[in-house]
Amino acid sequence: MTVTETLKRWWHQLGSPRWFYEISGPWQTGFAVLALLLLAIGTVWGLAIAPMDYQQGNSFRIIYVHVPTAIVSQTVYMLMGAAGLVLLVWRMKLADMVLAAAVPFGMSMTALALFTGAVWGKPTWGAWWVWDARTTSMLVLLFLYFGLYALRQAIPRNEAAGRACAVLALVGTVNIPIIKYSVDWWLTLHQPATFKLTEAPSMPPEMWLPLLLNVLGIYCFFAANLIGRLKLTILERESGTRWVRELIAGRSP
């Protein structure tokens, strides 16, 4: 009973941008420190210490950048779908801000995943770009991000733009599995997913552990980045309120 009550209170508190602004500072620092540690260890381990692949040589090492960015870009879109649902159902201001703040991060991660994929594809497949199932669905994902970005730019009023983006993000989220499936229907060159929840990875641990660290690291990076952007958005949108004016007045005497 107390658990549900705590959750309920927390849910209500989330409706207040001010409350979020005040409690999120330490979280941002925590996530940033964790991200820095995890990414530093994972990257050095992956790029310098992990053993070479017996077939692909050193070129396989790009997975330590490629896989985390690809995974996080899909999660960010799903998160925006969830934020869209919350915004449309509960009209929570913070959900609107999440929708606005997550787009640039997701878009750049998708682009980075496509770019690193191309760099890896050149020595491995012999071409910068191959129309295989997963590169194609990532490309479609990039276009979905562009669409969200462009829609927000096109609508002048913040509130209307947020809800329009919420509808689009929801429709996109429903479509992503169908797009992935339809593209998989095509002939596929890409190797199957590295991490599956249901089975142990086929790589030795000294190869997949740094990858896992980098994946966790990039999630922490996303969290820190999102909180930072949210705080800025809150200040910008709430700039007319008293607490923001007092906050700014208090900081710059």
Binding site: V140, F143, L144, F146, G147, L168, V171, G172, I179, S182
Partner: peptide
């Protein structure tokens, strides 16, 4: 076009 065409892919 930008919004709809990606959803037409399947």
């Amino acid at each position: 076009a930008l919004l709809v065409l990606p959803l037409y892919v399947p």
